[in-house]
């Protein structure tokens, strides 16, 4: 009897948290097609006429701002650059580190573990100084490289704990065939690591798609801003057009949520792999 009661409470808690996790996104969608007056009357966006035009206004941005076309292309540039640097350097290093002697390998992982705890707040002043000195402020490509580097510890640690358990037999077979280390990595190891690479790529993307702390410092001109940095200026401009504000929030969230829903298995497993390490 007591057990049944306990189960009921647990069940209710799970349903409650699920609603709390999902309902805000539903509300963003509902509010994104309402007029200002309707939103004032009903802050949940349940009643009122449907105005798809909010999306057009959000996409164009208000007068004097860059608009979402520009924010999206900047985010895309930063994301692709970050992925190239992050995966290119990180996955490779994570794999070849498994060939180090145990002692060097421990130092290698320690270096990256300690980097995970260093806050971005320690980086903003020197980045601003260096980017400014080299004329690299307001360039999505360059901030993409910084993002790729800052996401390296996560990528390296997750991939390393994946490669440490890589089936040795496959590598031995390749060695017997006389395949070189680099070829083995590209031809045999990488194709088999697709799932884990997808996981770290997703984590890097989520980071880049939401990062503002460096963004507000290094991307000050409107035309150079990424989606999340642009959203921060959105807020002030749309006090009189709440519908368009919510349309902007929905447009900013949809791509990354869709990607997550497609690759969620890799993401949740990747987090478990990273958690293993600490």
């Amino acid at each position: 009897m007591r057990n049944l009661l306990g189960r009921g409470t647990a069940r209710a808690a799970l349903v409650l948290w699920t609603l709390l996790a999902v309902v805000p996104f539903v509300l963003i969608l509902l509010l994104s097609v309402r007029s200002n007056a309707d939103i004032y009357l009903n802050g949940l966006g349940i009643t009122g006429k449907i105005l798809p035009g909010n999306y057009a206004r959000a996409w164009q941005g208000s007068a004097g701002t860059a608009g979402l076309t520009s924010y999206f292309s900047n985010s895309l540039i930063a994301a692709v650059t970050a992925l190239v640097f992050n995966l290119g350097a990180g996955v490779t290093a994570a794999y070849f580190a498994t060939h180090l002697s145990d002692r060097s390998r421990i130092w290698f992982t320690r270096l990256f573990v300690s980097s995970t705890v260093l806050p971005i707040v320690l980086m903003i002043v020197p980045y601003y100084q260096a980017f400014n000195a080299f004329g690299l402020l307001n360039m999505p490509v360059v901030i993409g490289i910084a993002y790729g580097a800052l996401a390296l510890p996560t990528t390296v640690l997750i991939m390393h704990s994946f490669f440490v358990d890589f089936p040795v037999e496959l590598l031995e077979a390749a060695a017997l065939d006389g395949t070189g280390a680099w070829r083995t990595y590209v031809r045999i190891v990488l194709p088999l690591a697709k799932g884990a690479v997808t996981a770290v790529a997703m984590l890097t993307l989520v980071f880049v798609w939401g990062e503002t702390q460096l963004g507000v410092v290094l991307l000050q001109s409107g035309e150079s801003q990424t989606v999340p940095v642009g959203l921060l200026s959105f807020q002030g401009q749309y006090t009189t057009d709440q519908g368009a504000l919510f349309a902007g929030l929905s447009l900013a969230s949809i791509p990354i949520i869709l990607l997550y829903l497609v690759f969620h298995k890799n993401v949740t497993k990747g987090i478990a792999l990273g958690g293993v390490f600490k």
Binding site: T18, A21, I28, L31, G43, L231, L245, L249, Y260, T268
Partner: peptide
């Protein structure tokens, strides 16, 4: 649950924070 509960962490923090501020 595993899939759904991680959604708030995936969406851009700026976007969901602005939504909650309005709420």
């Amino acid at each position: 649950y595993r899939v759904i509960w991680f959604l708030p962490g995936v969406a851009p923090a700026a976007a969901v924070s602005i939504f909650w501020t309005a709420s």
